[in-house]
Design a protein around this nucleic acid. Structure first.
Lengths: 283, 283
DNA sequence: TAAGTTGTTCCATATAGTGGAACGTCGTTT
DNA sequence: AAACGACGTTCCACTATATGGAACAACTTA
């Protein structure tokens, strides 16, 4: 919408420019057509902090009411979306059903499971398994002593790749050009005072991580929490991820994390070997 | 495909009949167009026992190769599907991400949580929370003593509505016509020797359940496992579900389940009251 | 190497999605 | 209580998008 001060022509010109850059993007980013628009709706609902009503979706998506209404209706019919009693939208239960299968059927997770347990046994701290999904890390599994905290809260959760141990480890396992390409698209947000917020700096750290085979998160994502991580990958690097040992910094010093580095590296190496054997090119 | 003995005309006639009944169904079942076809692919992958390659999908879906290929490509681009190293398909990690939000954002689950814990405290046995999704029960939560069995395996899983305690409880909370309509669409499969496999019998039992406010699963789904369940519902019955206490029959007798019935009923009543307060029409 | 199977790309056609506008419906205001 | 306005829903001509046959590429098996 043009602000009061601008004249109409300027705004229209602006609009043309936007359309052009959209078209440019369409050439590089694969167009997923109708499906893409549908999952965009799901994404808005998933990422929303406050309850979203129809009007809110309309603003967030920018589709005309008739169109959006049909998209939403279809999503509801398919069980991917549901309407709460207060007319706000929530994600549908069908997604839970799909996710249960996605999780139990995931070979990566299945292979890593015993190694995560062993690593937890050795360190006594929380162990994570995550894989890189575009610019985010999605946590596939978690082993911790105190089961009091419900594990659901973590599995499936996504965190940024540039400020988590698993994320940086995963990036380091990518071909460097690919890693740079992704870093270039990162929207750096400062989560703590230690968060890296510069693509160049992150790129250099990746080189170090690649050389050492170990990544550290020095309270870059959450104050008071640090971790040591190592990369895991499929043979052709179509999947990259990482495992990590996470601990509160008040209880576990960085020096201890560094002492665990070898164990983490060894566990990751064992997982990679298993992956090679069970998912490898000649499997 | 026509079997060797049939002649071609008979088979074609058969085919025409099928098409007609498909068209009839299309009038009653809402058409979700392109989206529906996409999730049909996800569903096939999700329900598949063995790994599915492109050819297998083609057989299961019945789409021409070009079309199916694009649908699959789009799903992959959106992260809803992924290709395993062996060229078989698996559900994508984006689904895990969505499910994590669907779960943590579910008001129903949130409200029921403390009541489930209390019921577990009282009985010492496994407590489930499930909601009805068309003809299946999807388990939203689970409280059990031995955390040895990973809880992921259960959350999000779907079970038939006609042979589970939660399922029958949920059906009993529906308006009777709605319950009958769903029962009519059930594809009864005998899971154990006690499984109800007749719509009329199930309908009658629902009347009893409605009167008693309690449903039993007498080893109808799995031999050696029985449970006592009670219905929960949203104020307008747009959601119906149930809670249950489940136990192995070798250790807990039916008589004990019957003794727990009051506790289960009370817990369900408490949840329903909370729902009324926090999600009710005047909330 | 050849033959066969499995998967991918292309393009004219038909179908399904689009969005403006007109219509209900509910909650708020005078 | 009536009127207004905001929010959501339905409808339909138009057009963008999905479709699927066919030709092509890649990978397996004989």
């Amino acid at each position: 919408m043009p602000s009061a001060g601008e004249d109409m022509d300027t705004w229209i010109e602006q609009d043309r420019t936007d359309r052009k850059s959209d078209a440019d993007r369409a050439r590089t980013v694969p167009d997923t057509g109708t499906l893409g628009k549908a999952v965009a709706v799901l994404d808005v609902v998933a990422r929303a902090e406050r309850p979203m009503r129809f009007r809110d979706l309309r603003e967030a998506i920018g589709q005309p009411p008739g169109t959006l209404h049909r998209q939403v209706s279809n999503l509801i019919s398919e069980g991917l979306l549901q309407v709460n009693p207060d007319h706000s939208y929530g994600l549908g239960l069908r997604l839970l059903q799909f996710a249960a299968r996605a999780w139990s059927g995931n070979r990566f997770r299945e292979i890593a499971e015993p190694h995560l347990a062993a690593l937890h046994e050795k360190t006594g701290e929380t162990v994570h398994l995550g894989v890189l999904s575009d610019l985010e890390v999605i946590y596939l599994d978690k082993v911790e002593s105190r089961q009091a905290v419900r594990m659901h809260s973590q599995i499936g959760n996504a965190s940024p790749c540039y400020c988590t141990g698993v994320g940086k480890a995963a990036l380091s396992a990518l071909p460097p050009e690919d890693a740079w390409a992704r870093i270039a698209r990162v929207d750096f947000r400062r989560h703590t005072e230690h968060t890296l917020t510069d693509a160049a700096v992150l790129g250099e750290e990746l080189a170090d991580i690649r050389a050492a085979g170990i990544a550290f998160d020095r309270e870059e994502h959450e104050t008071g929490i640090h971790c040591v991580a190592a990369p895991i990958r499929s043979h052709d690097r179509s999947f990259v991820g990482g495992i990590s040992v996470t601990a509160p910094s008040y209880r576990i010093a960085m020096a201890q994390l560094e002492r665990w580095a070898d164990d983490v590296r060894a566990a990751a190496a064992a997982i990679n070997a298993d992956i090679e054997i069970r998912l490898g090119p000649r499997a």
